[in-house]
């Protein structure tokens, strides 16, 4: 197989990108792989690669397909950095943190394509307050409880259930 970049040398480096079960194969020779991936032990993905993939993913949703909302969005600018969604689509990069808010519906769709999930369940900054953290911990435990019940691991499930009750008591809800 020939390298898809230079079309001259034999491809020896093969990448597979999986997005929602959709596999994209990339084949490069070692020289081109270094170019796209950076120098030898590239720990972080070279941005060129990532944006290439992103453009492909963004491209799945062409302006025409979604009708007018997308066209409107092409004009609208992020109040933080002034980027339009079209510009984000082109570069595969957000301009600032406010872009996420401004283009939330589009981002939600895109992030589901990239990650499979659409909502953050991990770490919460301390400043978000105890109530929010508890709320998040509770929703995390609830999905774990569901999982455990499905797997019929009832002993472990009982522990998780007790922990949820504890959190609810602490929150002062008391509705068990």
């Amino acid at each position: 197989m020939l390298c898809q970049n230079c079309h001259a040398r034999e491809a020896t480096v093969h990448f597979t990108k999986i997005v929602n079960g959709q596999a994209t194969q990339m084949h490069f020779c070692s020289e081109c792989a270094q170019k796209v991936q950076g120098f030898s032990f590239g720990f972080s993905l070279h941005p060129v690669m990532v944006s290439d993939f992103l453009q492909a993913i963004f491209g799945v949703n062409p302006a025409g397909q979604a009708g007018q909302p997308c066209n409107v969005l092409q004009q609208e600018k992020c109040p933080g950095c002034g980027k339009t969604f079209a510009q984000i689509q082109r570069t595969g990069k957000m301009g600032c943190s406010r872009c996420y808010e401004k283009f939330e519906p589009q981002m939600e769709l895109l992030l589901r394509r990239i990650h499979g999930g659409g909502t953050h369940v991990g770490k919460t900054p301390l400043r978000c307050g105890a109530a929010f953290r508890t709320e998040q911990e509770k929703s995390r435990l609830k999905s774990k409880l569901q999982e455990l019940i499905e797997r019929e691991e009832f002993e472990e499930a009982a522990k998780v259930r007790d922990r949820i009750r504890e959190l609810e008591k602490m929150a002062g809800g008391g509705e068990v």
């Binding site: 957000m94 981002m107 953050h120 900054p125 978000c128």
Partner: peptide, 27 residues
């Protein structure tokens, strides 16, 4: 985080330049 105002959104988590890192920002 105690010293800087870090970008975070309750829905999308830690906000990053590239959407492939958003959420936990953890690789």
């Amino acid at each position: 985080e105690e010293r800087l105002d870090i970008a975070y959104n309750k829905k999308f988590g830690y906000l990053t330049s590239c959407p492939t890192n958003v959420g936990t920002g953890l690789r």
